Structures are given as C-alpha cells and as structure tokens.
Simulated assay, not measured.
Amino acid sequence: MVIEVIAISLTDAKAAQQAGADRIELVAAIAEGGLTPSYAMIESVCGEVTIPVNVMIRPHSRSFFYDENDIQVMLKDIQICKQLGASGIVIGALTEEYAIDEHTLQRLIAAADGLDITFHRAFDEVKDQSKALETLMAYKEISRVLTSGGKNKVLDAVNEIQALEQQASHSHIQIMPGSGLTPTTLPSFITQIHVSEFHFGSGVRHQASFDHCIDANKIRDIRDIMLFRA
C-alpha cells in the first residue's frame, strides 16, 4: 500500500522519505488549501529525495474555476515541473456548475505529457461525485482521485468512499482517501475501505498541525498498520 505525505518544505520531504513515505505531495500555502510551490522548492525537493514527488498545480485559492490567464500559468507551471524532475502533478478544475471542467482538464493533461496525475480535492466540491468520477475515468492519464468523500473528514464518509471505490474498481483509477487520517484513526478506517493508496497531511505532524514538523514515528506507525493489514 502507498503512503502519500504532504510536504511544504525540503525538510518535510526528507523526513517523510526517511520515515517510510512512498510519495510526496509538494505544496505551498497549505493554510489556503495548497498552492503551487516555488520553482526553487520543486527543484530542491526533486533533487534530494528519491521517492516520487507530485507537485500541486493551483494558481490561486479563490475557487477551482479558472480563466484563460490562470490556465496559462498552470500550463507553464507544469512545463517547469517536468524540467525540474517532478514525477507527477496534482490538478483539478471545475465549471461554475460544480462539474469537472473537461476543457481545462484536457489542456492540463496534454501539458503533463506522461507525468503521473492526481485529481485533487476539487473533487469534493462537485455536485455529483459519481458522475464526476465517471468523467475522470475516461482519462487514462489520471492515476488517482484524492477525496474525502465530499465530507470535511474522510472518517465521516466511509459509505461514500466505499461507493466510489466500487465504481472505480474496474477502471485504471485509484481512489485515495485523505483528510483526517492519523495512526489512531487509520486502523478502524482501513478495515472498512479496500484501497491501496492513502493520503496524510496534518495527521503525521507533531500536535497534528502544519505549524509543526513531520513526526517520523507517526509515519512509521502507519507503515506498521499497513503491513499488519497486508
């Protein structure tokens, strides 16, 4: 099973790797839900860790609706991520009707040109998650959907995650639960959900806060939990 950990610094990324994380989601401005990090940050992290680094591509935090100016920035950011050695990108775009913005999505996918792609928690704002997932499953380039099942915390969305998991089970897309998972909450959650990738943010930090650094022991505990389940 895959443990993905949010990193907001090079120190985070190195600590997560050393503790046993399988993949980094690299972001800036986590208090705003995560924005694209600086090019220097991307280059430093990709140059100093060996596990995959997927970079958030999000130009602002106002919404997940993007105009042409926003899209041009996102396309350039994706190009730079490729040049700096990122393994993948983390993207999402919605229409003002809160459905998947396929026009924008297609342009971002084309720019990715082989990079690993995660569709991020913009998915949790769509009006119809089943319909949205059906749309995303048409794109073979998208590896996974990060979601809390439309709830604030994924622990409150077990039924929703199960439904999405079932819907995606015969496709190439992985459902990756995130938001609220910790070494304490994971054991009961993992018995109800049969996915292979999990996303961790504040739950693997000291005092469960992005104001504090990564707690390597929490990542090790999560690894042990997953090994026991396997």
Rank of each mutant, 00 (worst) to 15 (best):
P183Q: 01
L108E: 08
A122E: 04
K153F: 06
T191M: 08
E25W: 04
I193L: 11
D221K: 02
S130D: 09
Q174A: 08
E160F: 13
I190E: 03
R220K: 14
L164W: 13
N69L: 09
G150P: 09
R205T: 05
I193N: 11
G150S: 14
A157Q: 12
R144Q: 13
A122R: 03
V27Q: 04
I30Q: 09
I225K: 00
R107F: 06
R229T: 09
Q106C: 10
G150T: 07
A132L: 06
L164H: 08
E165M: 15
I142W: 12
M74N: 12
S61K: 15
T95P: 02
Q18K: 11
L105M: 07
T135N: 11
Q18G: 04
L35M: 15
Y39M: 11
Q192E: 15
I225W: 02
R229P: 00
P37Q: 05
V73L: 15
A110P: 01
V45P: 01
M74Q: 13
I214W: 03
G92R: 04
G149V: 03
N159F: 10
F210K: 01
F119P: 00
D128N: 15
D128Y: 05
G85M: 12
V90K: 02
A216F: 05
Y39D: 02
D128P: 07
S130F: 10
S179Q: 03
M56T: 10
A7R: 10
T147Y: 00
A138L: 11
H194E: 14
D124I: 14
L115D: 12
Q17C: 12
I161D: 09
H60E: 13
M1Y: 06
L75D: 04
A112I: 09
F123E: 03
A13D: 01
K131E: 10
G201Q: 05
R121N: 03
Q166E: 11
H172F: 05
N54S: 02
I142P: 04
T11P: 00
S143M: 07
I117D: 00
G180I: 02
A19T: 01
L133N: 12
I219T: 03
E96N: 10
I6N: 00
A86L: 02
A40P: 00
S38M: 14
D77R: 13
D221R: 00
G150C: 12
A15V: 08
D67Q: 12
